[in-house]
Amino acid sequence: MLDESYYRKTDEIISRYVRDSRSLIPIMQDIQAEYRYLPPELLSYVAGQIGITEAKAYSVATFYENFSFEAKGKYVIKVCDGTACHVRHSTPVLNTLRNELGLSEKQHTTEDMMFTVETVSCLGACGLAPAIMVNEQVYPAMTPEKATALIEDLRRKG
């Protein structure tokens, strides 16, 4: 069970929309924007509030890669592995980030909840390949060295 404040916040988010099945995706997006992930308890809560089944809400939430049921770190690093970035050596960048942070293909978030590293299929910034994104900020023409420096930088900022 989540803290009461989560449900109050969710009520506030739901109140921005029509209480109907069509509001599910915008509500989920707002919750994820608030908490950087979609707490499963809140998905069930939203389903009840807008009158759809939990199974239906789960179906939608798992269909889109964008929704995550796991809490993410303070810095969410999206490494582009689209065609352009891939051929311009995004894999070494990804490996460096994972090594630096002790993460793997299975574990995406550091235990101190500071960093999450995930791959995305295209950031739409192919001209800047290989690109990565940290939260809303794009970093172009990445190299393993630049990645190491970036992590150090973010760690210093805390």
């Binding site: 089944t53 939990e54 789960y58 179906s59 798992t62 269909f63």
Partner: peptide, 19 residues
């Protein structure tokens, strides 16, 4: 009742209860 739904996508798609 609506216990079951499709979950996930593509080759991972399956019929399952929520979560």
């Amino acid at each position: 009742v609506g216990v079951l739904g499709f979950a996930h996508r593509g080759t991972d798609a399956m019929v399952s209860p929520a979560f």
